[in-house]
Simulated assay, not measured.
Amino acid sequence: MAKVSSSLVLLFICVLCIIGTVEPAKPRGRHSQQARPYIEASCKGTRYPNLCIQCLSGFANSSTIQNPEELAKVALSVSLYRAHHTRWFLLKAAKQLQAVKAREYPAVSDCLKQIDDSVFQLSQSIRELRRMNESAVSDDVFWHISNVETWTSAALTDASTCLDEFPTERNMSKMKATIKGKVLNVAQVTSNALALFHRYAARYKAAAETRP
C-alpha cells in the first residue's frame, strides 16, 4: 500500500510540474530544508539546471530525496512521465492528421515511433535501477549500471531523432511547434536524468577502486 501511495504522489507532482499551473510545494520542516539545497546543488551538474530544479524541487518535502539514489529514481520517473505525456499527444495528433491526409502525418507518425521507444527504454532503465540497488558492489552492479546508461541514452537519442523530423521553419504550424516543444522537453529532462544517474553510479565505481 505504501508503494502505491508513493507512486500516486510521484505521478501527481509530475503532473503539476508539467502543466505548470501551481507553484512547487513550499519546503516545510527539517527534511525539506535539507532536500532543497541538495537538489539545487545536484542540478548544477546537469545540462539544464533550471529545468532540473523546476521539476525536482516539488519533491523537496520528501524525506528520502537526500541522496543520489533517490534523486536518480525521481529524475528517471519524471522523464518517463514526460515521455508518456508526449506519446499521448502525438498519438492524438497522428490520428487527426491521418484522417485528413495531412502532409505532416508521416513526420508525426515517425516521431511517435521514436517516443514509443523512449517510453519503453525509460521503463527498462527504472526497472534496472531497482535491480541494481538490490545487488552488492560486484561485477553485477556494473552490468546494471551499463544497462541503465544504455537505455537512458537510447531514450535521449530517440527524442533527438524525433526533433530532426521538425526542423525550424519561419511559419511553423501551431501543432508542429507544440510537438517540437514537448519532445524537446523529453530530451532535456532525460539528459538531466542521465547526468544524475551518472553521479549516483560514480559511488559504485569509487567503492570498487578501494576494494583490495
Rank of each mutant, 00 (worst) to 15 (best):
S125G: 15
I145M: 08
E149M: 02
H144L: 02
H198D: 09
E149Y: 06
D116H: 06
V189T: 07
N133K: 15
A155I: 00
K205S: 07
H144N: 13
A107H: 11
T157Y: 14
S138Y: 00
N185I: 06
A107Q: 11
S173K: 05
T157M: 11
S125K: 03
C111V: 07
C162K: 08
S173Y: 06
D117H: 14
Q121L: 14
L163C: 14
Y200D: 12
I179D: 03
L122K: 11
S191C: 12
S123K: 10
A201V: 00
L112A: 09
V141K: 11
W143I: 14
R199L: 13
T152G: 10
C111R: 00
A193P: 03
R199G: 09
W143Y: 12
N147P: 05
A177D: 08
A155H: 03
A193D: 04
D164R: 15
V119A: 07
A193H: 07
Y200F: 12
V186P: 09
A202G: 12
A99G: 10
Q188T: 01
D140Q: 12
L156C: 05
M172H: 04
V137H: 03
S125T: 02
H198Y: 09
N192R: 04
D139N: 15
M132C: 04
S146D: 15
V108W: 01
L112C: 06
D117E: 10
P167C: 11
P106Q: 12
W151K: 05
N192W: 10
V119T: 13
R127K: 10
S135Y: 03
A155Q: 04
E149N: 11
A193K: 02
V137Q: 02
F142V: 01
C111H: 07
I115G: 02
S118G: 08
P106I: 11
Q124A: 11
Y105C: 02
V141R: 13
V100S: 12
K101I: 01
M175A: 04
V186G: 07
T161P: 06
M132H: 04
